[in-house]
């Protein structure tokens, strides 16, 4: 049991100052920008809630948000079952376990822009291994820089490549915590593989899977560097996800007002999911 001690505040103070400097000042600035208009030189004019109204009703924002949701749900539907299946097939102990873990974690440690460049090189027609294989061996017309469908598939496969291991590692951590006695009891009862999964493995994995799903939801919702390096948001706007669009408006066009309003809407979504994550986590901690 924790003890009541307000000295905790002193311990937390450095963190508080550093994170407040990085989070509160920018947040305040964004709120200020979101209700004003500027033509540079730090001269601001009141704009009211016009930017919010404009962003919430703009086709461009709806399209980016739609693409973002489509992307996030697609990768969740692929990565979560795939990750669980691979975790179930992994050996429980022995020499190969650490080897598997290290190799699987490797993609997650690669700088995000290198992931994008790597997949770009990998999928270039004629030059890349995959591009060559699809175009010249299988005869499928594939060019991610020209065809929106190819670009979408590439971005999704890239994310699956990059982050499925997160689900595998978490699900595996849940699986190895199941005592051997459970499986023996199930064997004696003559339980099928499915009921072992449904009644022993899945409940044990519930907590880690919740973490995995929320983390994947959040990180894929914030994704910027990988798809930007791979496709630059194109061809056209077909892979312009929410973050890419925001950076385009904020740093590309330097439209501070609309960018700030969009940031706040984005932030509201993030806040709700973080809250869900936190509530589920702390409920299980008790």
């Amino acid at each position: 049991m924790k003890t009541e001690n307000q000295r905790g505040w002193l311990f937390v103070l450095p963190v508080l100052i550093l994170v407040a400097f990085n989070a509160l000042i920018p947040l305040m600035t964004v709120v200020n920008y979101s209700v004003q208009e500027t033509f540079g030189n730090n001269q601001f004019f009141w704009a009211g809630l016009r930017w919010f109204e404009e962003i919430l009703r703009s086709e461009r924002f709806h399209a980016a948000l739609g693409r973002q949701l489509l992307f996030t749900f697609t990768i969740l539907i692929i990565e979560v079952p795939l990750g669980v299946a691979i975790a179930l097939a992994m050996p429980r102990r022995g020499f190969w376990v650490p080897v598997c873990l290290v190799l699987m974690a490797l993609p997650m440690l690669i700088p995000w822009n290198v992931v994008g460049s790597m997949w770009n090189i990998f999928t270039l027609p004629q030059i890349g291994l995959l591009g060559y294989f699809l175009n010249d061996v299988l005869g499928i017309n594939y060019d991610m820089t020209q065809q929106p469908v190819s670009a979408w598939i590439t971005v999704i496969v890239m994310d699956v490549w990059h982050w499925t291991s997160l689900v595998v590692l978490l699900a595996y951590a849940g699986l190895v915590s199941i005592p051997e006695a459970y499986y023996q009891a199930a064997k004696i009862d003559g339980a099928s593989n499915w009921s072992v999964f449904r009644y022993i493995q899945l409940p044990k994995m519930k907590r880690v899977l919740t973490i995995a799903i929320l983390l994947r939801f959040m990180d894929s919702f914030n994704i910027y560097t990988e798809p930007f390096t791979l496709t630059g948001g194109g061809p056209g706007n077909s892979t312009t996800l929410l973050s890419i669009d925001l950076v385009k408006i904020a740093l590309g066009q330097f439209d501070l007002g609309p960018a700030a309003a969009m940031s706040l809407i984005y932030f509201a979504i993030t806040l709700a999911v973080s809250w869900l994550f936190y509530t589920l986590m702390t409920r299980d901690d008790q």
């Binding site: 000042i25 305040m28 600035t29 709120v31 200020n32 920008y33 209700v35 004003q36 500027t38 030189n41 730090n42 001269q43 601001f44 009141w46």
Partner: peptide, 10 residues
Amino acid sequence: GFWMAWTRAT
């Protein structure tokens, strides 16, 4: 002229 662009409302 301050970059944080405070107004009384915000």
